[in-house]
Design a protein around this nucleic acid. Sequence first.
DNA 1: TTGTATGCGTTATCAC
DNA 2: GTGATAACGCATACAA
Lengths: 338, 338
Amino acid sequence: MKRVTIYDISEILNISPSTVSRALNDSPSVKTKTKEKIIEVAKQLNYFHNKTASRLKTGKNNTVGIIVPYINHSIFSAIIQVIEEILAPLGYIILICQTYEKTVNEIKHIQSLLTNQVECIFVSVTMETINYDHFKKVTSAGIPLIFFDRKADIENVSSVILNDFKSAYKATEHLIEQGCKRIAHFKGNQNLEIYRNRYDGYLKALKDYKIPVDPDLIISCKSSIEEGKRAFNELYNANISLDAIFSPNDHAILGAYQEIKNYNIKVPEEIALVGFSNEIFTKYIEIPITTVFQNPELMGTKAAKFFLEQTNKETTDITHKNEIIEGTLLVRASSKKR
Amino acid sequence: MKRVTIYDISEILNISPSTVSRALNDSPSVKTKTKEKIIEVAKQLNYFHNKTASRLKTGKNNTVGIIVPYINHSIFSAIIQVIEEILAPLGYIILICQTYEKTVNEIKHIQSLLTNQVECIFVSVTMETINYDHFKKVTSAGIPLIFFDRKADIENVSSVILNDFKSAYKATEHLIEQGCKRIAHFKGNQNLEIYRNRYDGYLKALKDYKIPVDPDLIISCKSSIEEGKRAFNELYNANISLDAIFSPNDHAILGAYQEIKNYNIKVPEEIALVGFSNEIFTKYIEIPITTVFQNPELMGTKAAKFFLEQTNKETTDITHKNEIIEGTLLVRASSKKR
DNA sequence: TTGTATGCGTTATCAC
DNA sequence: GTGATAACGCATACAA
């Protein structure tokens, strides 16, 4: 099937292609009468604007990319939604990419977004990523790079992240205030700044409240239900006494909860639980799980604003912004001892 | 910042742009030596391929669009993932669009995908949609339109949907086998074929088992937690006796469950519950909820295959396929009376 | 194996 | 108000 172009319209009406183009772009310098005729014929021919050609000509692409680990994790889908709500009305197309926490996918997506000439790339980096060369390619091409939630430590980028340290501190402090003294931590991948900060927040709270740090209570654990099960079982089988777990993600704490239930251990009386991210299931589980709300709406809004500020600026020297927003501890049954 | 083009490379090396183009496309008709030189310079200049230009020239866009109500609903995120896994390795870019169940968004996205010259559009239609003109635009432009899970009843399209009737029948039958006789139904929006079919499956099972249909037990209810709460409360406040609820979606049954718990009614002893879609929370809730698994992986695979078959075919006359796949009832505690 | 010429569909810059 | 022309960056038919 042959594509309908402005030439087809111009031939039918004996009007030049430029006028057709102007009319379809609703240019004020075209007579209303001719405009109407043109639009009428366009409709009849089932014409639609070829953005590819227009992009090539204008150099304006009106496309941005968003790269996240998983689109169905509550924080990411919420952030995508907000960015969409802000940019779509301005005519932007949003390319959503998933890495599934694999650096190879991240590299591929960056490459693909660059060849697609996007105007901005929003990224929440993979847990795996330690080399940042692919990100540097973006900035050195002069394309704004904006990190959200998880950032890479490189120059010339903007970022919106959570105060993970303080949020983790508050979570741990809360457990301490409930009377917990043997608080285990599911230590996340330390490649990731967020997990380093959450770990540090945990340590600092213990220190401030003069609770000794016991290495036995700190166990490496990835963000998945299975890993949470494994981690808890390791503690359990090693006969390590504990009265609370602070996990830097909700999936692992859910896994732990499943096992705790299997062993008929009481939550929160015997073991109190705190997670991180406010995944939907934390609210609807038998014993709702205390968790940290990361305010994804605010994060997404700020990220989108950063892009708009940069792109609307006439000057070439871009100012990069780094914003840290505060998390909110949602205290639920899993940690309320009193 | 000026864009680097193949002309920049060609000037530096005193080689024609066509050779540069060929080299970058790894054409076998370029000497390895020149190829290496070209790639080297391209890297130095931080050149990246301009897909916009290439698309315009070749007419090959390598882009498909997927339109879903919500990206974070389990069935949709799973389907997106599969389609991605199949098409990305073949070089396709996937434009993911969310309608949030609004027809206006659906229309906008279709329009946008058409102007973006996508090669195929995969759609799961909105609950609201009753007019199909925007879909007809797609087919009349000669672009393959493939429905999954929820389809619109128009010509020249392919589709992969669930056997909703049979799945609902099995769900209801299961409740009957558990001894339930007063089975309520949260009747979904009847615009949508899936909800009509699930309703019909419910009715047919009652009929086959000679259980009278009581209109009092059938209550209209949208797919949300709040709506589920409202629906249950209406039944409860009207003093309508019931021993089971079959909801054609998981969100409403979760809402109902919350209220049931508030009233201290026992699940499944006093009221048995069955939902639909296998949302993640149905598994991890206090009393895991029986639900229908829709096999999204299979759905996505079939949909992607349909597209590939159509697009690889030389002939212009396209054969449209309509496939119905079977659901699986996942029996869990919420309905096991014996 | 490489170079020349042309066009994809649009829009911007002139000119009229 | 409208028309002619060139150009965006690339790929390809054809020539050499």
